[in-house]
Amino acid sequence: MTPPGPPQARMLAVAGVFAGLLALIVLRAIDLTVLRGPDLARLAALQHRARIELTPHRGPIVDRHGEALALSLDVPSVYVRPREFGRQDARLAALAAALHLPLQTVRGKTAGTQGFVWLKRQMPPHEAEAVERLGLKGVYTVQEGRRFYPHNGLAAHVLGFVGVDSQGLEGLERRLDPVIRGQPRDIEADRDGRRQVIFTAGVPAPPAQGSRVELTIDAGI
């Protein structure tokens, strides 16, 4: 067995080990703060910031007297955050009944791992109220603009129609879509530790609605 070295030699060896560890820590700190610091800061900002597009209401289409032929009104839509919803299987039947959707459809939408899934969009207010009364965790209601045509089929071939995301698909709704739809506005919001969006400066005002379009036709004729 090799006899231990002098105490001074052992102390120098231990000091050398600690000096090496300290050097590694310093180099790691320099790497994180100086060399990769800007990239890591940008990554952290992306994780705690969210960019959200606010869609304006479509502008109204009116006849020569200002009578509305097409207009947008706020209606409720319901979405779920599946990770937050968790295991609430016993309440799925009640949720499906409130939404007037098949149970299997609702189960599929709530069982994923996504951060956001639409359950039902642009629904009657009484259905949204029924969902809210259930008080389910992870299920939320938001207001969206829905297009209405007060005169039903009047000049339908001229007016056209829009999709669920408020994009013009046929007729004037499509041809004049850039004018009627308005300009969406992007805003930035914070995310909390659970990745939920929070507005630290208050809920932002919606963007101005699209432009009004006046036609030469008369709805009364």
Rank of each mutant, 00 (worst) to 15 (best):
R181K: 15
R181T: 05
R181Q: 12
R181W: 02
R181N: 05
G182V: 01
G182Q: 07
G182R: 01
Q183K: 15
Q183D: 11
Q183C: 02
Q183W: 08
Q183V: 11
P184A: 11
P184K: 13
P184L: 14
R185T: 14
R185M: 08
R185L: 09
R185I: 08
R185K: 14
R185H: 13
D186T: 15
D186K: 14
D186W: 12
D186H: 13
I187V: 15
I187S: 08
I187T: 02
I187L: 06
E188P: 03
E188N: 11
D190V: 07
D190A: 14
D190W: 03
D190M: 05
D190G: 02
R191C: 05
D192K: 10
D192C: 08
G193P: 00
G193N: 09
G193H: 09
G193R: 10
R194K: 14
R194Q: 13
R195D: 14
R195P: 01
R195F: 09
R195V: 11
Q196W: 04
Q196A: 10
Q196D: 03
V197C: 05
V197N: 10
V197W: 12
V197K: 13
I198M: 13
I198R: 15
I198Y: 10
F199W: 15
F199G: 06
F199D: 03
T200I: 06
T200R: 14
A201L: 10
A201S: 13
A201N: 12
A201Y: 03
A201V: 04
V203L: 10
V203C: 00
V203M: 02
V203N: 06
V203F: 06
V203W: 13
P204F: 06
P204K: 14
P204L: 07
P204D: 14
A205M: 03
A205W: 01
P206K: 02
P206C: 01
P206N: 04
P207Q: 02
P207K: 09
P207Y: 09
P207F: 04
A208K: 12
Q209W: 00
Q209N: 01
Q209T: 09
Q209G: 04
Q209I: 01
Q209C: 10
Q209D: 06
G210R: 07
G210C: 03
S211H: 15
S211A: 15
S211D: 11
S211Y: 09
S211I: 03
S211M: 04
S211V: 12
S211C: 04
R212Q: 13
R212P: 01
R212D: 03
R212T: 13
V213Q: 05
V213W: 01
V213E: 02
E214M: 11
L215R: 08
L215Q: 00
L215S: 06
